[in-house]
Structures are given as C-alpha cells and as structure tokens.
C-alpha cells in the first residue's frame, strides 16, 4: 500500500478542518496579539525602555509569535484528534491499513502547519508595531518548526489520554499558559532574582522563546545549541510515547 497517499489524506483533511473554521482558528490570535502589541508593547513598553539592547516592543515580538505557535499547534492536534475519538471516526483510520506512524505524522503535520500559519499571521501583525531586521532566519524557522512539532506531539498525547472535553482544556489552561508566560516572553530571565532564574531554567519554553528571539533580533539569555538539544530530546521522547500509546491502542481501542 502507498502510505504517502494516506499521509496526504490526513494532512489535507486537517488543513481543510482548520481553514473551514478560520473564525475560531486564525482570527482570534490576530486579535489577541494585536492587543498584546498595543498594551504591552506600545503603552507599557514605552515606559520600560531597552532590554539587552532591544526596544521593549522588539523584545516581546518573538515571544508573542512563538506563544501563538505553541498554543495553536497544541490546540489543533488535541481538539482534532479528540473530536475524532469522540465521534468515533478514528475507526475510519483503525480499520484501514494505515500504519501508526502515518497517523501520528499526519496529525502532527496538521498541528505544525496551523502553528506556523498562525505564527505568520502574528508576525505580519507585528510589522505594524515593531521595526527590526531578521538576525538569522534559519534559526528562527528551525526553532518555530521544532516548537510546533513538540507541542503538536504533546497535544496528541493529551487527546489520546483525554476521556472528556474537560480533559483537553486542563493542560492548556493550567500548564501551557503559565509556562508560556513564565518562559521569558515579556521579560529577560536576567531580570529575575537568582532563585527564580534557576527555577526558570526548568521551563523548556524559556529555551525555545530565547532561541526564536535570537533568530529574529539576535538577543538571547540561553545557549542556542542547548535549546536544540533539549527540544530535540523532548521530541524524540514524545514520538516514542505516542507510538507506544497507538500501538497499545490506549484510549482508542478496547
């Protein structure tokens, strides 16, 4: 069997899904981030001044873009795969000769594409407020893709283990949002007391935000190589976990 056709079918279905409901998927981040840029960047930022040689507006743009990538790549996979489970149309895939890795890569690709698309929308909006030359596009792109991949995988695991719609909102509300806000989006980790600096180092989002910031404006609190090692390590671990869950049929088979 030609598994690439099955892969393309899942990806096309996923893209069609979030494009069809664009007022829920693409419009809200545009509005929310415009407000972020206006309130934090413009009104408050003008009183803060420079951080690590960058204006406050330029400093927060990369973090806000990446925060959108994180939340939307996660949300896409968790809501889509959980709905597929809930409506039982996961059975369409389970009865067909589609390998587990194709199911996983199809859904993850959908999450990555939505995450990057939302990231692009936010980046375009940021052009209205910020003015900077991209420092290293390759690092920015690689960081965005790795981040979207990691959080798509996390969303997939959440969807597999979720038993109700409540279960798919717990992680985004109580884990993802706090980690994002504490991941150095709005501040430099150097501004924190030493104890909080140490605690912040346990937050993987801090590494990704800083790597992305380095790619866009050339400023980072963290070693970029370390970011790629940590993100890559998490991705490998989550891929193995996802494939194990699919193989065992946990949450999707009797």
């Amino acid at each position: 069997m030609n598994v690439s056709i099955a892969f393309k079918t899942i990806v096309k279905k996923e893209i069609y899904r979030f494009i069809r409901i664009w007022p829920q998927t693409l419009l809200p981040p545009a509005i929310t981030t415009t407000l972020y840029f206006l309130i934090f960047g413009k009104l408050i930022g003008d009183r803060i001044g420079m951080i690590n040689g960058a204006s406050y507006m330029d400093y927060i743009v990369p973090g806000i873009i990446l925060m959108s990538v994180i939340s939307h790549s996660y949300a896409n996979v968790v809501s889509s795969f959980y709905s597929t489970k809930f409506q039982r149309n996961i059975e369409e895939l389970l009865v067909a000769p589609v390998p587990n890795w194709i199911i996983l890569s199809g859904y993850i690709s959908g999450g990555i594409i939505r995450g990057l698309l939302v990231g692009m929308v936010v980046a375009l909006i940021s052009l209205l407020f910020a003015d900077f030359a991209v420092h290293n596009l390759t690092i920015a792109l690689i960081t965005a893709i790795l981040t979207a991949t990691l959080f798509s995988l996390a969303g997939f695991i959440n969807a597999i283990l979720a038993e109700s719609f409540d279960d798919i909102s717990i992680i985004p509300n109580f884990v993802l949002t706090p980690l994002s806000y504490l991941g150095g989006v709005f501040y430099s980790v150097d501004m924190l007391p030493p104890i909080w600096q140490t605690i912040s180092m346990g937050n993987p989002i801090l590494y990704m935000v800083n790597a992305f910031r380095y790619g866009l404006i050339g400023v980072s609190d963290i070693d970029i190589q370390l970011t790629f090692i940590i993100t890559g390590g998490f991705i490998i671990a989550l891929v193995i976990l996802c494939l194990y869950l699919l193989h065992k049929g946990i949450g999707i088979k009797n």
């Binding site: 079918t9 899942i10 279905k13 069609y16 149309n89 369409e92 067909a96 000769p97």
Partner: peptide, 21 residues
Amino acid sequence: NFNQFDTAKSIVLNQAGYYGL
C-alpha cells in the same frame, strides 16, 4: 461514526485515501 461536518463525498473520498487509492 463519520465526521458529521464533512460532506458525503469527502467522507468516502478520505476513506479511499486511507486505503492508499
């Protein structure tokens, strides 16, 4: 057990894709 927001055609066409047609 199909996605009730999809059209009849896309439901059948997607299934063909899953079987590699």
